[in-house]
């Protein structure tokens, strides 16, 4: 167990014991290799199971709306931004959440490791950081990969990786390897295409969608009580998973969460059919930044992007 983990466990226990929070939301070891799972508890004994490692991939702020009472939540940089964004949107009162900021050295993208090794994750024995390399052990043999090759695209272009809004910061913020250009390489590929090619690309991607709505359900920014996609009068999109409606659903979802999405990458990771949703969300982040110099979840006092305006704003597209 790392020092950080030790500290996290004792702090979390203390918070529950002293009654400063009603719940702790953190991560515990998952039931599969290299997995973690959300731990949501009000029992101080459970805090001994809290973990911090390169596989803590859920954005736990999605649970804040449903636990009730005051919650102590383990937050990485992106999670903390999501929390701030929820506060901006008045979905959450700052005093109802106790943010336990944790250093994030980046999350290891198991899909990338699978691609690099040609194996599935359950066939790999061990993955661990060795300095700025990931040491992957398979059948006793060890291979090392530079961090840049195994970090998730989100982590490569994460800014800032350390939580800026917190009540307690545990541990030192580790040296995170970032490479924004590498992180957006898929976007660059798409930008180089013609509009027709891009449309064909997305059409093909969304042909696989089974409309399980995991992308929406894991998204902290998707907090509507009733999603437009489930309206029946009128039915904005067909409930049938046709590519056309799958595409409309996701395009609108992305536009609706513009300025709220912190690019935690949960939607893409949750997607069971591997639709590269992050290539949409990250691009949206860039558009918002370019047009309005706005970055989601960086200022809890700021009005939400879509609730604000400046009288002088680019309108070269308006006749």
């Amino acid at each position: 167990m790392s020092e950080t983990e030790q500290k996290l466990r004792s702090e979390a226990r203390d918070l529950l014991e002293k009654g400063r929070v009603n719940h702790i939301i953190g991560y515990e070891a998952g039931s599969l290799k290299f997995s973690t799972t959300p731990l949501i508890t009000s029992d101080k004994e459970d805090t001994d199971r809290l973990v911090i490692n390169p596989f803590i991939n859920n954005n736990l702020s999605v649970f804040l709306g449903e636990v009730g009472g005051k919650a102590g939540i383990v937050a990485r940089g992106c999670d903390a931004r999501s929390i701030v964004s929820l506060i901006q949107d008045k979905q959450l009162a700052r005093e109802d959440v106790f943010i336990i900021g944790v250093p994030c050295g980046g999350i290891i993208d198991l899909d990338k490791v699978e691609k690099l090794t040609g194996l599935d994750r359950d066939e790999i024995d061990d993955i661990a950081w060795q300095g700025d390399k990931a040491a992957v052990t398979i059948g006793g043999a060890r291979k090392e990969f530079p961090a840049k090759e195994v970090l998730t695209d989100d982590c490569l272009s994460c800014e800032p990786p350390d939580p800026r809004e917190y009540d307690l910061l545990i541990g030192e913020v580790g040296p995170l390897v970032t490479d924004g250009e590498l992180g957006r390489s898929k976007i660059k590929e798409l930008e180089a295409m013609t509009p027709e090619q891009r449309w064909e690309f997305w059409k093909s991607e969304f042909s696989r969608c089974i409309r399980c709505y995991a992308c929406r359900q894991v998204c902290p920014a998707c907090f509507c009580n009733r999603c437009f996609s489930e309206e029946t009068e009128p039915a904005w999109i067909s409930p049938l998973p046709r590519w056309q409606d799958n595409l409309v659903f996701q395009a609108i979802r992305m536009i609706h969460v513009a300025g709220r999405c912190t690019n935690c990458g949960e939607c893409e990771r949750a997607c069971p059919v591997n639709i590269p949703l992050r290539s949409l969300s990250k691009k949206m982040e860039e558009i918002v930044d370019e047009l309005f110099h706005y970055r989601a979840g960086t200022d809890k006092e700021a009005p939400p992007l879509m609730a604000a305006y400046q009288p002088e704003e680019a309108e070269d597209f308006i006749r």
Binding site: L190, E191, P195, E196, Q197, R198, W199, E200, F201, W202, L247, A251, M254, I255, A258, L280, K283, M284, I287, V288, L291, F292, L305, M306, A307, A308, Y309, Q310, P311, E313, A314, E315, F317, I318
Partner: peptide
């Protein structure tokens, strides 16, 4: 003003998708 923000984002984003 609010419409303008929404429109400019929508336009750029849909263009990226291929519209």
């Amino acid at each position: 003003y609010r419409a303008r923000r929404r429109m400019s984002i929508t336009k750029k984003f849909l263009e990226y998708m291929g519209v």
